[in-house]
Write a protein that binds this DNA or RNA. Structure first.
Lengths: 239, 239
DNA sequence: CGGTTGTTTGATAGGCCTCAAAGTCAGTGG
DNA sequence: CCACTGACTTTGAGGCCTATCAAACAACCG
């Protein structure tokens, strides 16, 4: 059930059997929602966090004129709002972009973990710091990368993140998003995303059709996006 | 010495006398560097974190073509790289933008805190989550706000953050940065920042001269940047 | 099979970038 | 005290990347 979550954690550190039990024991509920459902709303006091089990979700913030910025995409295994445990409120919505299943973990149980499992606490602290590292990389994309490089970079990032939980091969993975979703992640318009996808295709770098990403030339795609996975912290170290 | 750091923490939660002692006891050293010095380098294994005592510093990431994106500005009282405690390496440089003084805290002492002070651990976890919230707000700026709104928003953010530690009044604060520094924070060129500052001045919203920000009309400036300080979590809550 | 959602293409516009040079100012040294 | 220097700011001209507006096209669905 939360196997993918454990895979993600174990890609970065060792998780003991006892810690695994604590993680499993923290889950109070599993829920399913349809695409377009708000899973956690900005501004409200929150007392649970959620682990994505299947589907794609996002964190987003909107401007008054209706334009939307997705600040991170969530893949299965991700804690979508672990940071609400200490923040108490969110500064963004968490939105299901596809139908989603997720586990619900009461903050009270996370608090117990911080009182009794220092190492697991650090592992979860790490997990939120990893989210922040992704935010920083996206700031670089949004601030400095061209449209083509942004798309290329995102496709590389998702290949790695989905690969960790067994949902991507080297060259292919499902990504059931619309071009508008991509645009809102990349700080572009859907029209320009469409043209940029066309260019990626014509250059033989990657294809995006029917909710599937085909990476045609991994090396050149990574080069086009200046993708360096260091910010995803793919090493097992004691945290 | 780390008074400003304590002010920042106490704006968000209560810190007991014993916790304060633990915070103070964690400091191993105080150092000073000149402007343009790298305080922590991306990619290296790190075993200390640093608290900014005076000056302005930043986190930044660069592209190969030399363009730079500052992902967060640090003001006195901020932990500049508390996240390196769990990440072990940084995905970005920490750079002094002005002459800076900072306290050095070995990770070993942070680890002791996580073993013995669960509440203080959560407070520090909160602090890194606050950094992430700032990253998200900057993603929104970089992805969706106009140049004018970006500058306006940044000036509002820094007024609040410097105000918390007593370094800003409602309408004025020192910000000894160049227009190039601002450009690298805002995803713009220095030329365009210059023109945008001119427009802010002509509209009677804010002035930036000689390293000082004058907010001429706080309400209209906040409106121009669509600034809502909720993402800075200015409420004392048990974390 | 009309309605809805999402994709694709075309034409035009504009915000910001690039390149270039002049202006300002503090600091330095003769 | 005044050239000289270097760092930063300011302004101008032109261009490009991406946005905007619009419409055709495709795919799915009740």
């Amino acid at each position: 059930m939360i196997e993918l979550h454990l895979m993600k954690l174990r890609a970065r550190d060792e998780i003991s059997a006892e810690e695994e039990a604590a993680i499993r024991g923290a889950v109070a509920d599993v829920r399913e929602v349809r695409a377009d459902t708000v899973i956690a709303r900005a501004g409200e006091l929150i007392d649970v966090s959620t682990i994505l089990l299947s589907g794609i979700a996002c964190r987003h913030k909107d401007l008054r004129n209706g334009s939307r910025q997705i600040t991170e995409l969530h893949v299965p295994g991700d804690y979508m709002d672990l940071h609400s445990f200490t923040l108490k409120r969110l500064d963004h919505d968490v939105l299901a972009l596809t139908d989603c299943r997720f586990a619900v973990v009461p903050h009270a149980r996370l608090r117990e973990i911080t009182e009794t499992h220092p190492h697991l606490t650090r592992v979860y602290w790490f997990a939120t710091n990893l989210d922040a590292a992704i935010h920083r990389e996206w700031e670089l994309s949004l601030g400095r990368r061209t449209a083509l490089a942004r798309v290329a970079h995102l496709f590389c990032e998702l290949q790695v993140r989905l690969g960790i939980v067994g949902l991507a091969s080297k060259t292919e993975y499902e990504l059931p998003l619309t071009q508008t979703d991509l645009a809102e992640s990349l700080g572009l318009t859907s029209v320009h995303v469409n043209r940029t996808l066309k260019e990626l295709r014509e250059r033989g770098l990657a294809e995006f059709r029917g909710g599937v990403v085909h990476i045609l030339d991994p090396e050149r795609l990574a080069a086009a996006g200046e993708f360096n996975p260091a910010y995803l912290y793919l090493e097992r170290l004691p945290r």
